[in-house]
């Protein structure tokens, strides 16, 4: 079964043991990928379940107090979860429109020369490590915010969200650009031939046609924002309360794990609770992943109807 070829017309002979060894090796090496994903799930579940001995699931998810160092520890993650959601939402609200605008710019508006320059630069920006953004948030954005709005601290939700929004632009922008470029030329021609302006063509034909790709790019950006750690750790402020204003410090799940895992004894309730936080994060990203797979499949169908 392994030897069945998907492409081509020739059916070569497979006889030598070398062939069989190679096929087996490729197969077993690929299994490693499945094992790793399986292990991630297994270890996160295994290490987080014991926390349920110390507290209840609803207390964990909806408890308002996060004082893990006290005895007995208070392990309510509601503020952490709300912080994560709030920062994700706010950074998406900042980052996604900008990403989309940049994608439209590179795909539809920029002259070809400029596009050939901007696209690789945009992609390179995606490689800048998040610690750099976190650092800048700490030493540049925070003091500025603090002075400008006379706040107690510039390390807050607005700061972290703005940085995260910026970090989304290269990833989401590049992917959305690809989705826009995949819209066939003929559709643009048809629209122009009917007397549409460029903006009308973009808005009414190109964007709707690329919608599945744009959505899945955006979801990837949202997923990245949810999982981003260093920016949250350095620029978000770290108060485990539900944010009430843009300038409140927040403590999302990711930075909680990164900040506290180092100082907690292995096997303690706190330790297991942090794994539980990781499990929540993992489940959120898996859900987003699933959603984007659904959208892609639908987009594929939409195209499948085309010639």
């Amino acid at each position: 079964m392994l030897h069945t070829r998907k492409r081509g017309t020739t059916s070569p002979h497979f006889g030598g043991w070398g062939d069989r060894v190679a096929a087996r090796t490729a197969l077993s090496v690929s299994t490693v990928c499945i094992l790793i994903m399986g292990f991630i799930l297994y270890f996160l579940v295994k290490e987080s379940l014991p926390v349920l001995k110390a507290t209840t699931l609803s207390e964990l998810l909806f408890g308002m107090d996060w004082y893990p160092q006290e005895t007995p520890p208070a392990l309510g993650m509601f503020p952490l979860i709300m912080s994560s959601l709030a920062v994700t939402f706010l950074s998406s609200a900042i980052g996604l429109p900008v990403s989309l605008a940049i994608a439209v710019f590179t795909a539809e508006i920029a002259p070809r020369r400029l596009r050939n320059l901007v696209k690789p630069l945009l992609e390179l920006l995606g490689f800048i490590p998040s610690i750099v953004f976190g650092f800048l948030g700490m030493v540049v954005v925070a003091p500025w915010l603090q002075d400008r709005f006379s706040l107690l601290t510039g390390l807050n939700m607005a700061n972290a969200s703005a940085l995260l929004g910026m970090m989304m632009v290269p990833i989401v922008g590049s992917l959305a650009d690809e989705a826009l470029c995949a819209v066939p030329r003929e559709l643009r021609d048809a629209s122009y031939a009917l007397g549409a302006t460029r903006w009308e063509t973009i808005r009414r034909v190109v964007l709707p046609s690329a919608l599945p790709g744009i959505l899945s790019a955006s979801l990837l950006g949202v997923m990245r924002a949810t999982g981003e750690t260093m920016v949250m750790l350095m620029a978000a402020g770290g108060a485990a309360v539900i944010p009430r204003s843009l300038f409140d410090p927040v403590r999302p799940l990711t930075s909680t794990i990164a900040a506290e895992m180092g100082e907690t004894p292995v096997g303690s309730e706190h330790y297991h609770a942090l794994f539980f936080a990781g499990l929540i994060l993992l489940l959120i990203t898996l859900a987003i992943n699933l959603l984007s797979a659904k959208i892609e499949a639908k987009g594929f169908k939409l195209k499948g109807g085309n010639l």
Partner: peptide, 25 residues
Amino acid sequence: HVLRQSIRALAGVPSVVFGLFGLSL
């Protein structure tokens, strides 16, 4: 199919969760 989905899921795992996984494994 499982392999593809695993790799897709792996690509979405947050970096800090990789940290937790590395710690435990």
